[in-house]
Design a protein around this nucleic acid. Sequence first.
DNA 1: CTTCATCATTCAAGTCCTGAACGATTTGGA
DNA 2: TCCAAATCGTTCAGGACTTGAATGATGAAG
Lengths: 146, 146
Amino acid sequence: MNAVKLTSTLTFRLGTLGAVLTDRFSARLAAHDLKPKHVGLLAVLDSGAAASQLDVARIMNVAPSLVVSLADRLEELGAVRRERDPADRRRQVLTLTAEGRDLLAACARAAAELDAELLEGLDQDGAETLRATLGTLARRTGLPAD
Amino acid sequence: MNAVKLTSTLTFRLGTLGAVLTDRFSARLAAHDLKPKHVGLLAVLDSGAAASQLDVARIMNVAPSLVVSLADRLEELGAVRRERDPADRRRQVLTLTAEGRDLLAACARAAAELDAELLEGLDQDGAETLRATLGTLARRTGLPAD
DNA sequence: CTTCATCATTCAAGTCCTGAACGATTTGGA
DNA sequence: TCCAAATCGTTCAGGACTTGAATGATGAAG
């Protein structure tokens, strides 16, 4: 019958693991009063893939209205600048400020520390393979991956 | 400076990928009127690791009160049986029924289908390595992994 | 047998997110 | 040129999900 064990499916494992890691990341971010999605938004801007808030919403897979509140908070922190696009005054163009770049770097460092903690004891080779494979999957899933 | 790119950290990648996959799984489960956590509970029972609701709560990393409502729903579906432990009448012992096992199997199959979709085009070897590595990480994280 | 801990349950509250409604702006025809 | 429809951002009410505190039942220790 080819019985499948739920816990060994990628769907389930990535889901549960992802939830735990997101929680940990969230805890680290508490110091900055940020949520993972705020940092995700910074990363989208840093990648240069986005311009308008709607672009960001599509890339992040969230409702446009959520981007509004995320951007509100980040603007308040001075991490992003919000300007009307002169060519189309309906669009709000978000750009990363120097502070925003620093903030993103700090958060990326925090994530890297969590990575190290997670991978402790794992062989270096396996870690690199994992990173690469996940990158491929992220791309195939339409997620920002580099 | 060793600048770290956020999107290439496992923390971020596993987090975002996990969220997407959980959404997809959730969509599949809608047919059964179940959420991923319901299925997670079934899996915990199937593993034989748990007995009381509190055990389940600890394993799943959720509040005991949440287990109550999850179990309510599953009992209503006839997927689990709920009995007071004769040796300690405070404890509610959850056990999988035959229907519960079938339901879990169906959900595991759905997850496996999503896996196939996700891995389409990926080399078989990489997929198996990925599965194994994630299993290791799950174990190191205190998550149910076989 | 009294006191304290443990387990399940209920319930109110908090967080996070979405979708509908609105105003401002742009676009594509009549 | 002018108007109808589409697009973008924003606000806001509501829904889904989860937790923590309060309660009652049961058990354990002295």
